[in-house]
């Protein structure tokens, strides 16, 4: 079973529906016991970094996410769910992130329209398991901030919007995407299938 962490932010149903669509046993849950027993964990997130981090902390589920990452079970952060894995964000400098991936979240340059609300291509690293079998990696982004990992080797997909940025990371069991696989049509479903297979 794949647990999607429900900490009360935004539209979390779409990740659940998309995983179910590819045949995964996915459950949206705010129950720490369910997250602890899940084979894999998805950390979604939309909106403001600070608001998401505070909601995760006040929901009491921060420990569950940390435990899942430490356990070696597959984890997937999506959008702000990716950003929360980092040390902190310029969007909410006073709010620490989870610090599971070293690095910081920064605002995209203002010479492009922000947010980036667009489909964009990803330059995929050969070692990527997430993108395995995907020939034309067009995915859907909605964001104004991007993650700058301290170690660029964790990045398995790069995109460009005003600057080059990390579209996807795979750091051992912790995977994350700045884009929304659950909204990226057949490509996104293929990625979720790859994640679900990892969790099986």
């Amino acid at each position: 079973m794949i647990a999607i962490v429900d900490y009360g932010i935004g539209n979390l149903r779409s990740a659940e529906k998309a995983l179910q669509h590819v045949g995964a046993d996915a459950t949206l849950t705010d129950d720490p016991r369910v997250i602890a027993s899940a084979a894999a964990v998805v950390v979604p997130g939309v909106g403001h970094f600070g608001a998401c981090m505070e909601a995760l902390r006040s929901s009491g589920l921060e420990a569950s996410v940390r435990a899942a990452a430490a356990s070696g079970r597959p984890m997937l952060g999506i959008c702000v769910g990716m950003q929360m894995l980092f040390d902190g964000s310029d969007e909410a400098p006073e709010t620490p992130g989870l610090g599971l991936v070293a690095g910081r979240v920064r605002r995209l340059p203002a010479d492009e329209k922000l947010p980036q609300i667009a489909w964009n291509t990803v330059d995929v690293a050969a070692r990527s398991e997430l993108f395995a079998g995907v020939a034309e990696p067009w995915v859907y982004f909605v964001h104004s901030y991007v993650c700058d990992p301290a170690d660029p080797d964790v990045v398995t997909g790069w995109s460009t919007y005003g600057r080059r940025y990390a579209a996807a990371i795979e750091q051992s069991n912790v995977w994350a995407t700045q884009f929304h696989p659950e909204k990226s049509s057949h490509v996104g479903l293929a990625l979720l299938r790859n994640f679900a297979r990892k969790a099986a």
Partner: peptide
């Protein structure tokens, strides 16, 4: 729509 269509 949200159950069956996976674009924004």
């Amino acid at each position: 729509v949200a159950e069956q269509v996976f674009i924004p």
